[in-house]
Amino acid sequence: MSRETALRATSEGRLWQALLIGGALAFLGIFLALPLIAVFAEAFKTGLGAFVLAVQTPDALASIRLTLFIAAISVPLNMIFGIAASWAITKFEFSGKALLITLIDLPFSISPVVSGLIFVLLFGANGVVGPWLAAHDLKIIFAVPGIVLATLFITFPFVARELIPLMMEQGKSEEEAALSLGANGWQTFWYVTLPNIRWGLLYGVLLCNARAMGEFGAVSVVSGHIRGETNTMPLHVEILYNEYDFVGAFAVASLLALLALVTLVAKSVLEWRFDMNSGAGH
């Protein structure tokens, strides 16, 4: 209730408040909102027709299909990994836990380009297992499996990172109670743990998905940019842009921006639910 009173000993005067709020909003407006608006403005610059044509070219449609396919594989895999890792880390004591957490976070601190590079070095024609792959007629680099691997690497920490602090905070007493009542491990996870972490999990999956669909650097290195085959949406944007097809580039980009907006809205809704849930607990 005291938050409502404007005049307090330790708050800034109204003028200062207005200045600070204005400064922050101006900064956010220019640096964040304007680029977002620009994407849509450029996409529809020459009208709706040009936009529709641009996203309906076979290459654009192929890139959309590929992007969805990549996300459909890499997001569930990293979700399962995230759950397993946070279960092992938060429910048990073992030495080297801090190191394990650091290693899980490792992909965050590596340049996307380097993330792509390591797979080229491993599976590329001159790579460690390249000759063996070639002998068996298997293609990873400049093909879809390479894109999946690079995406898996890039999005590796997302789910685990949301879940570990959440499950750490929730402790394990509820699981112990369920086990003491005769539930087995799966039942305990399914009926006790999962309901407790579902919003955090969804949150992690959301961010993981946004990155998986939007990754550029790593995928760019391993994809080979074969139109209609190994071009994801972000890569297709680049190609169109470099060919000076700006409307086309921004049209495909606007679809990705829409994905970002949906992610942000869903994220805000989840945060709001989070607040409600934790509020009810007090």
């Binding site: 680029p35 977002l36 939007g214 550029f216 650097g217 972000p234 944007v237 921006a257 970002a260 942000l264």
Partner: peptide, 9 residues
């Protein structure tokens, strides 16, 4: 937004 918007965009 920068977390959600693909970098190429």
């Amino acid at each position: 937004l920068p977390f959600a918007l693909p970098t190429a965009v």
